[in-house]
């Protein structure tokens, strides 16, 4: 019986360490996707709950792509809800004279790279953050998972629930777009 308890404790400790390892990067990814810290925190929390509920019993070697798969689903849901809300808002305010002002208000604030980079005063960091937030969501996620998190093509495809060819395409376009934007900043 004590052996069983020890196994459970070890599993929970391993799970805790894994979540601690990925939580900061997950938050930054969600923040770049949503442009809002609070929304990002909520999405990461939902991803943790979903991952623990559905995939914690899987081998630890499979956790990384599975966690990002859950997070990616939450981010996609968030974008869908935002799109639907944007359509309703567009219909609601169709006759208003300040349509342009509303679109600007709903757009992510790409000039605000976040308090950390602002405090560091790092122009390169700001430029990268801005360039990443301007990328289409799938390209940004492919770049972050492949280049930052270091997942291989197969694991990235599993996380993004797409083919490996799609991952390569998204990453190629992301790299080209980022390089172009960063050269403009330089």
């Amino acid at each position: 019986m004590s052996g069983r308890v020890n196994v459970v404790t070890t599993d929970e400790r391993t799970l805790d360490q894994f979540l601690k390892h990925v939580e900061r990067r997950a938050l930054r990814m969600a923040e770049m996707a949503t442009g809002q810290r609070d929304e990002a925190l909520d999405l990461v929390q939902e991803a943790m709950f979903g991952f623990v509920r559905h995939y914690a019993s899987k081998p630890a070697t499979e956790w990384m792509p599975l966690f990002y798969r859950v997070l990616d689903s939450r981010l996609n849901d968030w974008h869908r809800r935002r799109t639907v809300r944007g359509r309703w808002m567009a219909v609601w305010t169709h006759n208003a004279d300040d349509d342009e002002a509303d679109e600007i208000a709903q757009a992510p604030d790409t000039n605000d790279p976040g308090p950390l980079l602002r405090l560091a005063g790092n122009e390169a960091g700001q430029a990268l953050e801005t360039a990443l937030t301007r990328l289409p969501p799938r390209q940004r996620q492919a770049f972050l998972l492949r280049v930052w998190e270091g997942l291989d093509v197969a694991a990235t495809a599993q996380a993004m629930q797409c083919s490996q060819g799609s991952v390569k395409t998204h990453l190629s376009r992301a790299l080209a777009s980022l390089r172009g934007q960063l050269e403009e900043f330089a």
Binding site: D16, K20, E23, L41, Q45, M48, F49, F51, V52, A56
Partner: peptide
Amino acid sequence: ARQAALEQR
């Protein structure tokens, strides 16, 4: 958030 997820399990 992490602790809440683990408590859920």
